[in-house]
Simulated scan of single mutants.
Amino acid sequence: AAPPAAAPPERRRRQDPAAGPAAPEAGVFRSDSRRPPSDQTLDRAYDDWQAGRVDEAERAYEQVLRRDPRSADALLGLAAIAVRQGRYERAQNLYLRVLESDPADPTAQAALINLHGGGDGGQSESRLKTLLAAQPDSPPLHFALGNLYSRQRRWSDAQQAYFQAYALDPDNPDYLFNVAVSLDHLRQGKLALQYYRMALSAADLSRAAFDRNAARQRILELQP
């Protein structure tokens, strides 16, 4: 599950849609796994992660790595767990291990840019666009670009990037949530309301990083 990049505009700031505070960043976890279908340990690890059993998921991913130290899915799973725990240096090292085997891995590339916060501005944007030119169907890369734009308060650009991520992975609750947030900041309340509701529905079926209570509160504020 990929984490949200921004929060809905606060009610007292509704006249200033660019004033909404950014939420903490986290890693990007690849859901379109390339693992063999017979790997039950990876299946169990992912199911534990989805169910919020983080310790169990971590142990299962570590078990996979002992058997296959280059397993991209296990490395990405452990990296996402490390980010959730605030262990950012460990997460970065895990993502770099993925890139050692596959320098073009879009999830690891996007996650590293998210972890660094896009502090280099134009260089991060240029790097993401270069990656997208080679891999235009990668949801994590579009999502990372949306995160970069949201930190710069470029909400129109962020909305387009988030929507592209959602179009490529329509069941991802965090992609839906960030489409809603960007629309909200653009004062498109009716559409934002629709996507907040869709995000909550998707979060009932798949692990989500966004604050559900914040989404529910914003729905109440946007309802006619």
Rank of each mutant, 00 (worst) to 15 (best):
A5Q: 08
A5N: 08
A6D: 07
R12C: 08
R14Q: 05
D16S: 10
P21M: 09
A22Y: 08
P24V: 11
A26C: 14
G27D: 04
V28C: 11
R30W: 10
S31P: 08
S31F: 13
D32I: 11
S33Y: 12
R34Q: 15
R35G: 05
T41A: 14
L42S: 13
L42Q: 12
R44W: 11
A45E: 09
Y46W: 15
D48Q: 15
Q50E: 13
G52C: 08
A60F: 11
Q63D: 14
V64F: 09
L65F: 11
P69H: 10
P69T: 10
A72C: 06
A72G: 06
A74G: 15
L75Q: 15
L78K: 14
A82T: 13
A82R: 15
A82G: 11
R84C: 07
Q85P: 06
E89P: 04
R90T: 13
A91N: 09
Q92F: 06
Q92G: 10
Q92C: 04
N93L: 13
Y95Q: 00
R97E: 04
V98D: 00
E100Y: 00
S101N: 01
A104W: 00
A104D: 00
D105M: 00
T107Q: 00
A108I: 00
A110V: 00
L112V: 01
L115F: 07
L115H: 04
D120E: 12
D120W: 06
D120F: 06
G121Y: 12
Q123Y: 06
R127N: 02
L128G: 02
K129Y: 02
A133D: 15
Q135H: 10
D137N: 15
P140A: 09
G146V: 03
L148N: 05
R153H: 11
R154K: 14
W155Q: 06
S156N: 08
D157C: 05
A158Q: 04
A158C: 04
Q159H: 11
A161H: 05
Y166P: 03
Y166K: 09
L168I: 10
D171P: 04
P173I: 07
L176Y: 05
F177C: 04
N178K: 03
N178F: 04
V179K: 09
V181C: 02
L183F: 05
L183S: 02
H185T: 04
L186G: 01
G189F: 00
L191S: 03
A192L: 01
Y195N: 02
Y196W: 09
R197K: 14
M198S: 12
L200H: 07
A202P: 06
D204A: 14
L205M: 10
L205E: 15
A209K: 07
A209H: 10
A209P: 02
F210Q: 01
N213Y: 04
N213R: 14
R216I: 03
Q217L: 03
R218T: 03
I219L: 03
E221W: 09
Q223K: 03
